[in-house]
Design a protein around this nucleic acid. Structure first.
Lengths: 152, 152
DNA sequence: TATTGTTATACTCTATAACTATA
DNA sequence: TATAGTTATAGAGTATAACAATA
């Protein structure tokens, strides 16, 4: 992502900013997870969808989108692709909505994805030492759950 | 970003994952910063470039790109736009590179951007309480600085 | 040979608007 | 009137390849 190291002595006034560090750290972890999931032919978003459907069998694609922060319109090609690959099944429950569930093949891939994601988490958590774990999770959750914060 | 709250009782097996929380938290902070910087006509990436040039007068656009993780090719329209708005100046030092610096107008806007970013940081740090500050920064920096981590 | 700046281009992610069919 | 799914489309952000000028 970065072509070469910056010239030494270069000042980075962003290096101490929470928002900037969150963005950079998230990019590093996502890029690494993406390359690890390539081996089983899934992108991170597809793996998270499989995990979510497994945890909530019978949910709709709108449910999934709401939890992951993905718009209904953008869920369509994601669900279609997982369906074409026979990893998920849709069954009509309503004239307008489908109940989603994993196929046996989807369950196999979900297990593999979960193992890769567990190892991925553990590797990064290990690098953080005592700072990781519930303290860090709680701090990030506090930010991630913010819907609105009063203006400056 | 999220249309409505997810159905209560919905399980989110991602909610405890560090990588997922980093991504969501970063999105929330970036979206908020973006809306706050709109008032002075800057995007977050443009504000960070102004801060970086101010801290390193005479640097090149390739230097800026290396520090921020932006490819040379993608720096071109960013620098061009800041130049057209007379916020930065280029002076040839080399047949092939330009030394960048802020114009007086650019310095005015940089000060405004920095004030907005300071308030933004403070507001989010305040929500995190004792978890924020150097401990959290160090943890995130440890992740953000990873270039390569041994494969699983 | 390597680097700076540049153009052109493509791919992903995200966003809105509008439509249908259902409830 | 509101919701689920869909289509089309537009805008960011990011990626590569290739080139000219220069070191």
């Amino acid at each position: 992502m970065i072509e070469t190291a910056p010239a030494s002595g270069f000042k980075d006034p962003l290096a101490s900013r929470l928002g900037y560090l969150l963005r950079r750290a998230s990019t590093v972890m996502m890029a690494k997870l993406g390359s690890e999931l390539e081996g089983i032919g899934l992108r991170p978003v597809e793996a998270t969808i499989l995990l979510l459907i497994a945890a909530n069998p019978g949910c709709t694609q709108s449910d999934v989108g709401r939890v992951l922060g993905i718009k209904r319109a953008n869920m369509v090609p994601l669900i279609a692709s997982l369906g074409v690959r026979a990893l998920i099944e849709k069954s009509r429950v309503d004239g307008r909505s489908h109940a989603l569930s994993l196929t046996p093949e989807g369950e196999v891939l979900r297990k593999q994805a979960e193992a890769i994601m567990d190892a991925h988490e553990q590797r990064f958590s290990g690098l953080l030492g005592p700072l990781s774990g519930e303290h860090l999770n709680a701090a990030l959750r506090a930010i991630a759950l913010i819907r609105d914060i009063e203006p400056a």
